[in-house]
Amino acid sequence: MTDVATTAVTGSQPEIAPRQRRHNVALWLSLGWLVLVIASAVLAPWLGFIDDPHKPLSGPPEEGPSWSNWFGTDQLGRDMFARSVWGGRLSLSIAGPAVGIGIVVGGVLGVVAGYFGRWIDLGVSSVVNVALALPALVFALFIVTMLGQSYINVTIAVTILTIPAIARIARAQALRFAAREFVTVADMMGARWPRLLFREVMPNVVPALASIAFLAMGIVIIAEGSLSFIGVSVGSPSITWGNILSSGKGRLEDAPHIALITGGVMFVTLMALNFVGDEMLRRLDVREARI
């Protein structure tokens, strides 16, 4: 993914160079932050400086940031830094598979619809349009309620939300490339449809899908955050960013750092995801999907 970015940069023109350079700095900062968040989330159980997020009285309750508790402590004196990291761990472990499956299923549906057109396109497009018209959170809420509040079910619910949006973009991309000369040439040279679809059209749609993955990740993190904020995601004692914020809601007066710092971490992460995704789409010149 990074080499897409760097090749695009080297080809930039002199007069847009300052802007390009600013975007590069922001891009590297965003990527750096994402690596930091993902690494700490993945390695949380093995990193010595991250406390046990469930251990009460790691410090005095509801204290602001200090040397021993970088992000302060919550109502029970649990270390907020550890809780933020573990919250991120759960949020990301839901968002990762959800986006992965969403990209594969949505991507294939969209490309097949865009490439074959006719009734396949009509079928896929109508389902996608209806799905996009429904309030996503209501739908996710319904699924989680029916199936039960567990990690798997929340992941299923948010995955279903990503598919129509991704399929729509993949379809637009496939339409755009299916009409290009190289596909027509391959067709005239006698290539059959699997070759046209998988060797000619699909590889051109993949870079756009990779960029969409970043944006979709942000959307899924917000969706899961909303679910756990209203208490309908994975049940306690699991820690998610959403339920930390929900518990910080009642303590705004005395301990605003609980909500503010976790909210801040979430905001910076989402901003980084959006920036990387948007910047990649800009460089690939994909207009349909920019946020």
Binding site: G218, S226, L245, G248, M266, F267, M271, F275, I291
Partner: peptide, 16 residues
């Protein structure tokens, strides 16, 4: 762009 990255519940908490 920044506003697009703020979840509703985070913004709401800050405003409150």
């Amino acid at each position: 762009f920044a506003l697009l990255s703020v979840p509703v519940f985070v913004l709401g908490l800050v405003l409150i």
